[in-house]
């Protein structure tokens, strides 16, 4: 495996980790329901409702 491929994989993993951390902190900063890890049916319905609203 070349240095380039090694570097690309390392960057991809670190970039991916950075992205999930950024998304976690952004989501958490909204507090309450968005910060909650449980993807409960209420949250699923809410997301669906918001998506439908956005589409219309």
């Amino acid at each position: 495996m070349s240095i380039l491929i090694n570097s690309v994989i390392v960057i991809a993993i670190i970039g991916g980790a950075g992205f999930v951390l950024y998304r976690h902190l952004k989501k958490s900063s909204q507090g309450s329901c968005p910060a909650c890890e449980y993807d409960c049916p209420a949250k699923q319905q809410l997301k669906k409702h918001q998506a439908e609203k956005h589409m219309s």
Binding site: I13, I14, Y38
Partner: peptide
């Protein structure tokens, strides 16, 4: 329902924090 949040976290914040 209670436990899947923990598994999901493994792929998100735990993975991010570990890296």
């Amino acid at each position: 329902e209670k436990g899947k949040g923990f598994i999901r976290k493994a792929g998100t914040v735990i993975f991010g924090g570990t890296v």
